[in-house]
Computed example of a mutant assay.
Amino acid sequence: MDALMAALVAAAFAQVGDRPAWLASILADRYRAPGLVIAAATVALLGAGLLAAAAGALLAPRLTPEARQLFLALALLFQGGGALFPVKPPDRLAGWRLGAALTSLIGLFILAFGDGVQFIVLALAARAQLPWLAAIGAMLGSLAVIAPAAILGEAGWTGLPLITLRRIIGVLFVLAAIGLGLSALRLI
């Protein structure tokens, strides 16, 4: 159960001001179907999360408990470090002619799979008895941010103080990573 909650919180924080939420807001505006974009995001996020969780489950037997903790610290450090820099706007997928559902599903899957959240899911799954709970948690946490972005639309979403929030969250991720890393090395 700890993998579910840890992934939920980490994903919710990580998605603030990140590209998947921004793309969801763009697609919801284009297709005037925020509910459809949210549904496609749910499937895309779950698929990407389950792939990362499966990789974590395969990696887990090869790692000591300290190595698993260091791996999670590294994932949090990468996410936090990335959040301290401006986010590049996502490709608007303007040339895609697959329809609202497939464009949203494939576009959000590609962004989600290459996202730092997947590295966190992989690291959490490597530490968990039930790795798939990390995928469920990450999906729910990501949706907690992506759904409002889709409902608000691009102008409403990008009008929020996302840069400031992203920097604060980045610092929190880095601090958590330092604490986990020092603990894994038994320095604190």
Rank of each mutant, 00 (worst) to 15 (best):
A134I: 02
L152I: 00
F113K: 08
L59G: 00
A138N: 04
A44I: 05
L187F: 07
A48V: 04
G159S: 05
L111M: 12
E66W: 14
R68G: 11
A57I: 01
I136W: 14
L122I: 08
A147C: 06
R62C: 00
L98Q: 13
A94S: 15
L172W: 14
G181N: 08
A21L: 12
A24F: 03
A112M: 11
G95S: 11
L124T: 05
D29K: 02
I168E: 11
L172A: 15
L180R: 10
F78Q: 14
L162N: 05
W157R: 10
R97P: 02
L76H: 04
S183N: 15
L84M: 12
L180F: 11
V9I: 15
R32G: 00
P34A: 10
L180H: 04
I188N: 15
L36D: 04
A126R: 09
V9M: 10
P20D: 11
L175M: 14
A11D: 13
P161M: 10
L111G: 09
K88L: 07
Q118K: 06
F113R: 08
A101I: 06
A3K: 02
G153M: 08
G170I: 01
A94G: 14
A55T: 07
G95K: 14
I106W: 12
G137A: 11
I178Y: 06
A144P: 04
A57W: 13
V171M: 09
D115V: 08
S183K: 14
T158Y: 03
A33N: 13
L175N: 12
A75I: 01
L27H: 06
L160V: 13
G95E: 15
G153A: 05
T64N: 10
A155M: 13
I146F: 09
P20H: 05
F173C: 02
A144L: 15
A100D: 06
W22H: 15
L175G: 04
L105V: 02
W157C: 04
A14K: 13
L36Y: 01
V121T: 15
A135S: 06
L93M: 09
F13H: 01
A44R: 06
A138Y: 04
G82W: 01
A155S: 14
D18Q: 15
A147P: 07
A125V: 03
G114H: 03
Q129F: 00
M5C: 00
L8S: 08
W157N: 12
V16G: 01
A53R: 05
Q129D: 15
E66D: 15
F109R: 07
I168D: 10
F71I: 07
L63H: 06
L143A: 02
G153I: 03
L140K: 07
S142K: 10
A94C: 05
V145T: 06
P161K: 04
S183F: 08
L162T: 01
E154C: 00
G47Y: 04
